[in-house]
Nucleic acid binder design. Structure first.
Length: 184
RNA sequence: AGAGCAGGUGGGAUGAUCGCCCGUUUGAUUUUAGGCGUGAGGAAAGUCCGAGCUCCGAAGGGCAGAGCGGUCGCUAACAGCGACUCCCAGCAAUGGGAAGGAAAGUGCCACAGAAAAUAUACCGCCCAGCUCUUUCCUGCAACGAAGAGAUACUUCGAAGCAAGAAAGGGCGGGGUAAGGGUGAAAAGGCGAUGUAAGAGAUCACCGCUUCUCGGGUGACCGGGAAGGCAUGGUAAACCCCGCUUGGAGAAAGACCAAAUAGAGGAAGAGGGUUGCCCGCCCGUUUCCGCCGGCUUAAACUGGCGAGAUGCUUCUCGGGUCUGGUCGCUAAAGUUGUAUGGUAACAUCCAACUUAGAUAAAUGAUCAUCACUCCGUUCGGGGUACAGAACUCGGCUUAUAGACCUGCUCUUUAU
RNA sequence: GGGCCGCUAGCUCAACAGGUAGAGCAGGACCCUCUUAAGGUCAAGGUUGAAGGUUCGAGUCCUUCGCGGCUCA
């Protein structure tokens, strides 16, 4: 886990450039619709968040959905050349707003560190799955106990879902890079 | 030492790596890179109150409605705070109290109980009367027995009659409110005097009411005199009294951009202003045609019109879209000193500037230390409640563990 | 960020202005029937969302919490 992470953000230049644009010019010089530079993977600026309610609605109505582990993801191709993420922590996971905020921050941190592994040009919404009392999949915490998920667990779950849905970049899709840690 | 009461502080610390919002600066030059700065709370919560601020055409008045309710003060204001009064709880420190009015009116008080509020009142107690029964006393006495007989006399017994006494039953009349299984609550309490029986009928003490004297700004407290009981509870039942109160809320509101579809439908001389009344505001237009009045004609004026146009209200539908900028953070501001005040608080001076997001920034990971729990040294776990959304003042609720201050009671020692 | 309403048996609802919490359906036992359904009889099931207060007495009145629903320019 440790080596895996360090390798990524110590060599940012290894990341592939996005697909060339239609006019074939160097992407570094082209004025992008929204400024976003490849290679700044450690940063997670606001333009890569899905913020508008309309965008959320579009993903939920037209997007493709994949489920597994703690997360359900909805994916929709966007007209931009980078990927945007939206996080959704439903009220059913915990009644406590502080706990939901903490989960959101942890998920955002995982995305920040791992988003360069994802194919570009999509809107991806991650929904934390609410556990019904009878089924064991998904995350559910009592209102009494504070949810205390390890960051590693969240990362493994997210990468697994992304791998199963096929939205990871091909070079990360071998068995070596697949998460081996605990899923729950 | 133990038990308890009240108040306050504070809400883990340091470092490393990688990030986010906003501001600023430098370089590039029109949105990017680097640097610097700043970045959640005591409750940010619940939304239970009060204000600022914004809009609502008079945003005016009265009533209704709503809210408040010991007194005095503090405050921008309050259902808040401080001090005090009274009542209740506690041995005490202390805590709690929506603590005006039930002798203005209306309602309610289930069950039980004589009665739940006008005691013409049931049982009971007492008095006198009538009547019945029983017993006793006195008188008369049919009759019977005894005295050897007898209609006479004596003695004994005796149904019955008359008058009276006592006890009991019944009837209606009067006095009385002591007592009466109940009930949450019973008609001032308790003790004596008194009486036919009783009763504030009278007396002492307590309570109550009225008057009065003294103290206090006041709630109220203390003393004295008189009255002689009249006034059951409930107002977080209606209500009365006093005081306060326009409505809606930052999705308020201002500006900008984009987009679409209003010659849509209905109604109207009235409409608006929270409900009602008053008041106020806006409107009842203009044009055309026809008819009438006046006139030489015009102008003016009255009426009519499925006419046109304007206005108002209601309704149907569409778009923006949960667009952008401002509002948006220097304020009843924070900290400290001094003065006044018992205090809440006020005033003066000095210093400081301290989040501004909009699917939501204020973070994540690791290490060491601190505290604490499990535990044989290793080691492992835990560190509350909880996240600003226009801003303040309160209230209420949630809160691991720690520290500080003052006070009360009990025990022991000196 | 506001505003409004509700919470009673397993479910759907009552209980007028404080006075013993009830009805229908469902479930249980029994009867009827060759058997089932229908029908009939019987009992059981509730700290009225929670905690305080007012009252002699709260489902009801007041306060504070909890949960759920509706609504907005």
């Amino acid at each position: 886990m440790e080596g895996f992470m360090e390798k990524d953000f110590s060599n940012p230049t290894r990341i592939d450039h996005p697909k060339p644009l239609e006019d074939g010019s160097n992407p570094e010089r082209v004025v992008l619709p929204i400024p976003y530079k490849e290679g700044t993977n450690r940063f997670f600026p606001k333009c890569t968040h899905i913020k508008k309610a309309r965008d959320f609605r579009e993903v939920f109505s037209k997007g493709e959905f994949f489920g597994g582990g703690y997360f359900k993801i909805g994916v929709l191709r966007n007209s931009l050349n980078y990927t945007r993420f939206g996080i959704c922590v439903p009220k059913g996971t915990t009644r406590k707003a502080t706990a939901r905020n903490r989960l959101k921050r942890q998920i955002r941190e995982v995305i920040r560190l791992n988003k360069d592994k994802v194919k570009q040009g999509f809107d991806i919404v991650l929904v934390l799955r609410v556990n019904r009392p009878k089924s064991n999949s998904g995350a559910h915490f009592d209102s009494e106990s504070t949810p205390n998920l390890k960051q590693e667990t969240i990362k493994n779950n997210i990468l697994k879902v992304l791998f199963e849905s096929g939205y990871l970049k091909p070079r990360f899709c071998n068995s070596k890079n697949l998460p081996e840690g605990p899923l729950a």
